[in-house]
Design a protein around this nucleic acid. Sequence first.
RNA 1: GGCUGCGUAGCUCAGCUGGUUAGAGCACAGCAUUCAUAAUGCUGAAGUCGUUGGUUCGAGUCCAACCGCAGCUACCA
Length: 665
Amino acid sequence: MRRILVTSALPNANGAIHLGHLFEHILTDIWVRFQRMMGNECYYVCADDAHGTATMLAAERLGTTAEAMIESLRAEHADEFGRFHVDHDNYYSTHSAENERLTRAIYERLAEDGRTFTADVEQLYDPERKLFLADRFVKGTCPRCGADDQYGDNCQVCGATYDATELGNPRSTLSDNTPELRSSDHYFFDLAQFTDFLREWTASDAVQPEVANKLGEWLTGGLKAWDISRDGPYFGFTIPGTEGKYFYVWMDAPVGYMASFENLCDRTEGLDPDDFWRADSDAEVHHFIGKDIINFHCLFWPAVLRGAGHRTPTKVHTHGFVTVDGAKMSKSRGTFINASTYLEHLDPEYLRYYFATKLAANTDDVDIQLDDFVQRVNSDLVGKVVNIASRCAGFIHRGFDGVLAEGMHDEELWAAASNARHELADLYERGDVGRAVRQITALADRTNQYIAEHEPWKHVNDPERRDEVQGVCSLGINVFRTLVVYLKPILPAMAAKAEAFLKVEPLAWEDAAEPLVAHGVDRFKPLFTRIDRKDVDKVVAATVAEAETADDGNAGSPEVRIDDFGKIDLRIAKVLDANFVDGADKLLELRLDLGDNQRTVFAGVREAYDPNALVGRLVVVVANLAPRKMRFGTSEGMVLAAGPGGEDIFLLSPDEGAEPGMRVT
RNA sequence: GGCUGCGUAGCUCAGCUGGUUAGAGCACAGCAUUCAUAAUGCUGAAGUCGUUGGUUCGAGUCCAACCGCAGCUACCA
């Protein structure tokens, strides 16, 4: 028996679970369920990746603490994966005591052995927000082609790569201020020391060939040291022996796999993390990741493990990205589908099956075609596989008290179905699930042909041929049973219903070796209903609607024309009255004078302004904003303010002389 | 720009180390059938295998260039 620890990449703790995450977790879960059916001891852990500047900023925007935000999202993520039948043994967070201890221990070991060093780094700093700016938070002019509005790492126009410090006219995307150059000590992991080891490791079968090619590019180019520290403010773990220095999120994220597993071990008798992670462990560790993060998992992580005296991963399984109808997932097209939206309209097993048909052991992108999705599920599962049981069960019940025949009516067909377990196991093991599904549906085709050839409906009333009818339908049900075994890693809920129909214990892989003979089965009830294309359309429509109401205040705004701006009626208004709103911790209710009319507007400025201080002052409002029903009443406009939220909100007001009702142009 | 991968019937894909008229499923058309969640079976139509050159007795399969798509290009998670 193999002992296997499996992980999926850690979803970010500042966003919802969407199709991309589901693809990865479902494909991992299929592999895990297969291993368990084979009788292997297989643990599957994951966690939310909680750390980083982005988490900190997202929490600020929401006006809450990072800890509160990540815990509520963690619970939500775990619940949604569960509803897609993704069977994590533990869904934890990287912001945990276990992870902090493990990350520090690994770091200290690396530091003691001379695997790390410090160096002075010059970086852009936003004096207003008081933080060092990562590349994505700086924009400016490309130093090579002069294109404006480019991010701090590379130019979208000419493709040049550069340091953020080389940008012309840099500005912070967080505050729009001009950042200043500051230097700071950074801690580095000296990856180059592991070049020989990594060359060897990547040449083993630990990674797919195309991944090895990609890694070869970095290996021959020479490995750079990894900057594993960040200056505060940052949401993460502090580096031991420093002040205001934090571990970069990619230092503690993969350690989060170990931490999640350790947390599981703590509440599981007889399970010891060291059995899986010590250097000479004979257990297996498998990581499932997307191709965007192979450098972290196939260079950095194995080197860190090696340097810290742990075992290295048995295998990193890399997959491609999900596209929908041939294009990147898009909110406006309604294809950036969140788990929660999908669940409102469709059965999770539809998606699991469709993903399975697309799975291969390569890094190609996987395209979801919505029409194809509906057709494949309806035709393969309902029309072919489930149909076999559906059409045979009636005869067995009407003529034979629901009891299957003693022998196999067609030995050859039975052997084909039963023996397929060897090759299918091989395909599952390799991750070539799409090919496995094709072979499974081919078996279903063959079985439907077989039933059509023997026409049991013609002979069921002929006493001479009763045995034949029972034999044909019993074999049909037996083949169906093997198909359930083979599909069970993909369709656990359908398999459970089929097990109830067959009146058998939960099926294991080797159950396909022997048929059911002289065995009573239940009456047949539908195991699976067809997808209605209309429900798919509802998911798309709901996704579009979500995108329209979403607050994307941190995204870069598209260019607009003067007439676009003209559509917005901005007016000067005078605050007549301002009051707290019962039950709302962020809102104030404002009564505004717009010259020719008065309005009630709710503004999210409670944490920043005392209502009494607002009465009498002039503000700017969007006067033609569609009225919005809120929990506490209807808001008839929007008061303009700037700032990230919480206590840092700054109302706009006009210079002396402006009067209520004046239009802002 | 560099790099990695991909480009085969309307759609999803299979074609291993080059070798007879390029395969399957879905969709489509016709026929059959009615046991089954209008499910199933049979037959058929449909491809200059991204383009152009090359290697070879012979290339979808190897090489080169080009075109198109996706991704990566290391302090974005």
